[in-house]
């Protein structure tokens, strides 16, 4: 007994629906729907799926996530990782092949200076996410100025990432 591994694991054949609240790592091989919070790390393994809000110090995604991801330290998306949702983190690592669809906001951190930037080629490309031209646009607004989202390094760096919706998987 005493299988106390010091972490929580959701097995590949398990589904948790609801809230997971942890002060240790949470590793998801299976499926989670709802929310996952940890003061440590949340890992969505390859094959794992989380339809959930994820909030943790560190988040590593090798599986699929539908929902907002918030990290106080770092988010890493591996080549097999998929995220559909908003990502808020001071540091982000997105591997080539990893896919993100949603807003990424990196802010409030000394990250800029520390950024290790192992980010490969694709990250260098600027993805201009095209909104489906607001259908309900009030006719009164004449300003159709569609700026190519200038790299406004002003406040919080906000990047809109275009999905790399790759052909694999």
């Amino acid at each position: 007994m005493a299988d106390d591994t010091g972490r929580t694991e959701i097995g590949p054949a398990s589904v948790v629906t609801g809230e997971i609240d942890a002060a240790e790592d949470v590793v998801i091989f299976g499926r989670v729907e709802g929310g996952v919070r940890s003061t440590a790390a949340v890992v969505v393994e390859e094959g794992g799926y989380a339809h959930a809000r994820i909030a943790a110090a560190n988040v590593l995604i090798a599986g699929s996530v539908v929902g907002d991801v918030r990290a106080t330290e770092r988010v890493e998306i591996t080549e097999t990782g998929r995220v559909l949702g908003e990502i808020a983190t001071p540091r982000l690592v997105l591997a080539a092949g990893g896919a993100v669809k949603g807003r990424v906001s990196m802010s409030g951190a000394p990250a800029a200076a520390v950024a290790p930037a192992p980010a490969p080629a694709p990250a260098a490309r600027t993805y201009s996410y095209r909104q489906p031209a607001a259908r309900t646009a009030p006719a009164t607004v004449t300003a159709t100025a569609k700026k190519p989202a200038a790299p406004a390094a002003a406040r919080s760096r906000t990047v809109r990432a275009q999905p790399v919706e790759s052909e694999d998987a």
Binding site: D4, G6, E9, G11, V15
Partner: peptide, 27 residues
């Protein structure tokens, strides 16, 4: 066969289901 483990410092509120073995060390 894999396990689902709820660690000592973890609390789950909701439903846990599946065919893994479930070990609850937390709540």
């Amino acid at each position: 066969m894999a396990d689902t483990i709820i660690g000592t410092k973890t609390r789950v509120e909701g439903t846990v289901e599946g065919s893994d073995r479930l070990v609850v060390c937390g709540e």
